[in-house]
């Protein structure tokens, strides 16, 4: 009995040690600042927010039903958004999706200027001046993009620029999947 425990102790300590090393190795290089979205496979939160360009038009969560939507969170104060914006012109050519913008914590005039200077590839834009809608979506920075399916369920959130690689490797396969009914 004594031999067993005395041989067990070193084995146990060494295996714990190896486990630690393996876990640490795995953790290195991962982006520690990225948060997973709490909305995955959940319906878009209920909201009622006015359109950016049309003051009298109110949007609700129902506007996301019936089509696959890419909801892009952007702002005129966000440097990366300027880099990302031209890509949306390309992505908008995809007939399976509609591209909608969420103008996050911006002043109306600054947002107009952004769209005027950079172009407007969005079907329509939500005007979230005080950021409350963003908080409902769990937004913690810009740009972020949500993929929403036909039933208004959030399927994916991407943090950062949707580069052509990201669009090709992550977005398109998921869009195909949603089209097939999954």
């Amino acid at each position: 009995m004594k031999n067993l425990t005395s041989r067990l102790k070193p084995l146990l300590s060494l295996s714990i040690f190896v486990l630690f090393v393996v876990v640490f190795y795995f953790l290195i290089g991962q982006d520690k600042t990225e948060l997973p979205s709490q909305l995955i496979d959940r319906p878009v939160p209920k909201f009622s927010v006015r359109d950016l360009l049309n003051k009298d038009l109110i949007h609700t969560q129902e506007d996301f039903k019936g089509k696959i939507t890419l909801l892009n969170v952007w702002a005129s104060w966000c440097p990366s958004c300027y880099t990302e914006h031209p890509f949306w012109q390309e992505y908008a050519k995809n007939p399976d999706i509609q591209i909608v913008g969420l103008n996050y914590r911006d002043k109306e005039n600054d947002a107009f200027r952004f769209l005027h200077e950079q172009g407007n590839s969005y079907l329509w834009n939500l005007f979230d001046e005080n950021g409350r809608l963003g908080i409902e979506f769990g937004v913690y920075g810009a740009p972020e993009t949500f993929i929403i399916d036909y039933d208004g369920m959030v399927r994916y959130r991407h943090v950062g620029i949707v580069s052509p690689e990201v669009y090709k490797d992550i977005f398109l396969p998921l869009i195909e999947k949603i089209k097939k009914g999954f």
Binding site: V21, I28, G29, K32
Partner: peptide, 25 residues
């Protein structure tokens, strides 16, 4: 190594992290 989130952590690339890890191990 970049494994921690802290105001105080040095921003570092993974190669350095792995090197220290092996030395530590």
């Amino acid at each position: 190594s970049g494994v921690l989130t802290s105001v105080h952590a040095f921003a570092n690339d993974p190669t350095r992290g792995r090197f220290i890890l092996f030395f530590l191990a």
